[in-house]
Design a protein around this nucleic acid. Sequence first.
DNA 1: CCTCGGTGGATAGCATGCTATGCACAAGAC
DNA 2: GTCTTGTGCATAGCATGCTATCCACCGAGG
Lengths: 159, 159
Amino acid sequence: MTRPTFRAESLGYRVNDLARLLAHALRDRIAPFGVVPGQFPQLLALYEEDGLTQAELCRRVRVEQPTMANTLSRMERDGLVTRAPDPADGRRSLVHLTVRARMIEDDLVSAASSVNVDATRGVEQERLSTFMAVLAELVDNLEGRPAASPSVADGGSTP
Amino acid sequence: MTRPTFRAESLGYRVNDLARLLAHALRDRIAPFGVVPGQFPQLLALYEEDGLTQAELCRRVRVEQPTMANTLSRMERDGLVTRAPDPADGRRSLVHLTVRARMIEDDLVSAASSVNVDATRGVEQERLSTFMAVLAELVDNLEGRPAASPSVADGGSTP
DNA sequence: CCTCGGTGGATAGCATGCTATGCACAAGAC
DNA sequence: GTCTTGTGCATAGCATGCTATCCACCGAGG
């Protein structure tokens, strides 16, 4: 046998699977509101604070700038946001939610919550807490440093 | 405050983040071999069993058929697989690995393993086991039934 | 003022994923 | 034998994500 279960056991493989399933479930539930999953992080960030610049949105939702530019264009097309030039800086434009986007906030958050609830149905609370904590650790490992040699002690590094 | 932390705490949000980070890390490490992350599941499935049909590949890696058709076209273009008509059934074609694809198997598996190792560095084994187990439960919840009425009994529906 | 490096944003080009269709072939109904 | 149904695959069209570039504007140095 080669590695008959590597695929099934690989972290990356399974996480990718789960991400697609979650996105699919979310898509189904927010379609009635004329929103697609890729617009969700931007909307949530703007619900938290409106009138951000594109660059600031990139930092908060952690996607690359061209991705954000394209997504915002679609959101503008779909009547979710408007882009107005920043009077204080000719390079920037400020992204604002439309009235429509604000009106569907509760619906969207409910839809997303229901996906999370469905996905975690039957999972013990403590195990779920561990899951979320480990998830955060994995993200930290991957986005923090590219990881060097951690085998020994970890003190004294980056002097 | 509206929901200042819903975004940061949402399962779907975090899982999507992690999936992109993992894919990015994998991309960096397999680029030298002329392979991209989206080809990985197909390669692993074919390493397990060569000569599958496109439909069977779809079932095993769980992507939709048009996605598979496009991915296989790119893999064919990149010299990783060949598609030969099935003599036993005029509709089907059988997907076979090329010599080149077989030669880089060990490198690819090593690269993927190293991503998993890096991502899980410093995570206790038991917590990691819980993580993987919960991950599987979440996938089951989402892909099983669309979930109906969970609170009471589930018998008697769809008479 | 003018040049320059840095930042903000847009565009081009590509990989992955999806849904919706269309067409070819297989296999059974008649 | 033909017709109907189902299966396998391709294509069109779109959403998301990325990298690589390019242009425009800001602010500091001269």
